[in-house]
Design a protein around this nucleic acid. Structure first.
Lengths: 247, 247
DNA sequence: GAGTTCAGTGAACATCTGTACACCCCAGCG
DNA sequence: CGCTGGGGTGTACAGATGTTCACTGAACTC
């Protein structure tokens, strides 16, 4: 009987929590098969806990991509990470709570994105070009996060749904104040700014959803989606400008 | 032991399949409690089958509203309808197949809607006003269907997801040919028409989603959403027109 | 170096799931 | 009239699920 075995995460994160006894493979206990011991750097207890916690979040994100969070079981996540189901409770009260944390993480990467756009020069055509480019770039880099938000936005877990809705609303408001700073719109009513921001946000959401739906091995499709998104933004902005401010 | 008992659907549809023996209440068999026999009109076998089938579809739609279709079990649906789980297979191979049928049903009501809009006169302001009004009206009348589409559009059942995506694409194409018939757009390239139709469809989808998210007892919120939707449509159309046709 | 903390284990539970199987009984057919 | 097709029933099973409980042993604290 080996004394130290190391659970290995199924994929990407590769983060495996420290294991001390046997391997867990379902309720039926089995002897741990002989496992090549991997030497790990001695980590502090807190660090190891954080590592497992992250592994759980990663696993949740990965599994939610396949089945919807509502259909992902606590046991499934635990199995994926390589810990016993009951150990899950050391980190989260429920899958739902884990989901809420995923919402936060996902929107954090989104905020990073908007900051990047905001940093550019305030010329309309550049903004359009930049925005779409940055968006696509971030969808690539944070595909899982965007995917999670898109799916759970109307998914089966009410608390998660509401959290996402709230974040999107914040987003919309921020965009509205950004728009107010543009030269052509400084005289607009806040109402009109809100309406415009709402339209833009939803057009971008739709673009993200189309990007996510496009198979990864079709760069032509992606180019097409980008072109469409640019034109739509142009239509919206040009329209808003020439329509002026009728109230 | 009573000879004829009648299962009663839990809610709306009220459609109950004919029952001949005992009541089913889980795997543990129980004697059917004395039930007041409800006199039913003698239906043909085919009619009774259709009735049960409809009851299953209704139950599926209702349950999917609470939990996402992927999280709804065959047993749950059967229980809701008042039949034994195994009887489900007499009507559908799986919950997924039932879901695909729900997609068809939902889009049928959507098509009815678009037909109504198309019937109106082709004047821009009237179109905008009409479209939004008809949309809201139909969301009220077919709330469950719209809800189903919104949720399952990115839900956990791949086949259902794809079916919905396909239907939306058809929609977009139809809208594009409609737009081509408008006086201001008869010279547009089909590419631009497609882009514009895409934008409009997604704006409307977003509107529906906002309507569905709004609590039913807040008519003021609904009015606000309608106003926003109208303005957005105006912005889009005005923008498209004044932007002209740069390619 | 002794004592405490706590992330992880493993067994047990009640309950739920999809599906196979044999049966039953009535409408609808000849 | 009797036969039969098929919507319905019950039973059964193997597997999955959330949660409880008592436990262990290495990392921390003093």
């Amino acid at each position: 009987m080996c004394s130290v075995t190391v659970g290995v995460g199924r994929s990407s994160g590769g983060s495996a929590p420290g294991r001390t006894r046997g391997a867990y493979d379902g309720d039926v206990s089995e002897q741990a098969t002989g496992v090549t011991a991997v030497v790990e750097p001695p980590l502090s207890r807190a660090a190891r806990k954080e590592r497992t916690r992250q592994a759980l979040l990663d696993a949740g994100l990965r599994l939610a991509a396949d089945h919807t969070l509502a259909a992902v079981s606590l046991r499934h996540i635990a199995r994926e990470v390589g810990i016993v189901p009951t150990a899950f409770y050391r980190h989260f009260d429920s899958v739902e709570q884990l989901g809420l944390e995923l919402v936060d993480a996902s929107f954090a990467s989104l905020r990073a994105m908007i900051r990047e756009v905001r940093a550019g020069e305030p010329e309309v055509n550049t903004i359009v070009r930049n925005s779409v480019e940055v968006l696509v770039e971030h969808v690539h880099a944070q595909r899982a996060h965007f995917h999670f938000i898109a799916r759970e936005r109307f998914g089966g877990v009410p608390a998660v749904r509401e959290a996402i809705g709230h974040q999107l609303q914040l987003f919309e408001r921020e965009l509205a104040t950004d728009l107010a700073r543009l030269p052509t719109m400084d005289t607009w009513s806040s109402e009109d700014l809100r309406v415009l921001a709402n339209l833009i946000v939803h057009a971008m959401v739709a673009t993200v959803e189309q990007l996510l739906a496009a198979p990864a091995n079709r760069p032509d499709l992606e180019q097409e989606i980008m072109r469409t998104a640019r034109r739509q933004l142009q239509m919206i902005i040009v329209g808003a400008a020439s329509w002026g401010n009728p109230r």
